[in-house]
Computed example of a mutant assay.
Amino acid sequence: MDATTLTTLGTFLVGAGAVVGVWVQYVGKRGENALTGYSSLTNDLQEERDALRTERDQLKGERDQLNSRLAEMASLRAADQAEIARLRADNIRLGGQP
Rank of each mutant, 00 (worst) to 15 (best):
K29A: 09
V24C: 05
Q65T: 03
N43V: 15
V14A: 10
G31A: 02
N43T: 15
T4F: 07
A89E: 14
W23A: 00
Q65L: 09
T11G: 06
N33F: 03
Y38W: 07
L41F: 02
T11Q: 09
E62Y: 00
G95W: 03
L6N: 12
E47D: 13
L9K: 13
A82H: 01
E72T: 00
V19W: 01
A79Q: 14
D2G: 04
N43D: 12
Q46A: 15
D80P: 00
A89F: 11
G15E: 01
V19D: 01
T54K: 08
A71M: 01
S39T: 13
N67H: 12
I84N: 06
G61W: 07
L94T: 11
L70Y: 11
N43K: 13
T7V: 09
R69N: 04
R30T: 03
A16W: 09
V24L: 07
A89Y: 04
A3I: 14
Q81L: 04
L13N: 00
W23L: 05
Q58R: 15
T4W: 06
S40F: 11
R77F: 07
Q58E: 13
G28W: 06
V20H: 05
E47P: 01
A34G: 12
D64C: 11
R63H: 09
E83L: 08
G21H: 01
E83Q: 06
D44T: 14
V22P: 02
I92G: 02
Q58L: 15
R30V: 01
V24Y: 10
T4M: 03
A78Y: 07
L6Q: 15
L9W: 03
R88D: 12
R77A: 07
E47Y: 11
K29G: 10
G95D: 02
G37S: 08
T42Q: 10
R56D: 13
M1Y: 14
F12R: 10
E32Y: 08
T36F: 08
A3P: 01
I84T: 10
T8I: 12
T7C: 02
R53L: 15
N33R: 10
G15T: 06
I84L: 01
R86I: 05
G10Q: 13
V24A: 10
R53F: 14
L94H: 05
E55K: 01
Q25N: 09
A82F: 03
T54D: 12
V27Y: 12
L52F: 05
V20C: 05
S75R: 11
W23Y: 11
G31W: 05
Q81C: 00
L70D: 03
E55C: 06
S68F: 07
L70Q: 10
A85M: 09
R93T: 07
P98H: 01
A71G: 02
V19A: 15
E72I: 00
L9Q: 08
M1D: 13
S68Y: 02
I84V: 09
L52S: 03
R63P: 00
Y26R: 11
D44Q: 13
D90C: 04
Q81W: 05
Y26S: 08
G17A: 00
D57L: 15
T42E: 11
G37M: 07
K29C: 04
R93Y: 03
T54V: 09
R49P: 03
S40I: 04
R49M: 11
W23E: 00
G31H: 03
L41Q: 13
N33W: 04
E48W: 02
L41K: 15
V14D: 00
V19T: 13
E55P: 01
G15L: 09
E47F: 15
A16Y: 06
R86W: 06
E32I: 05
R86F: 08
L45M: 13
V19M: 04
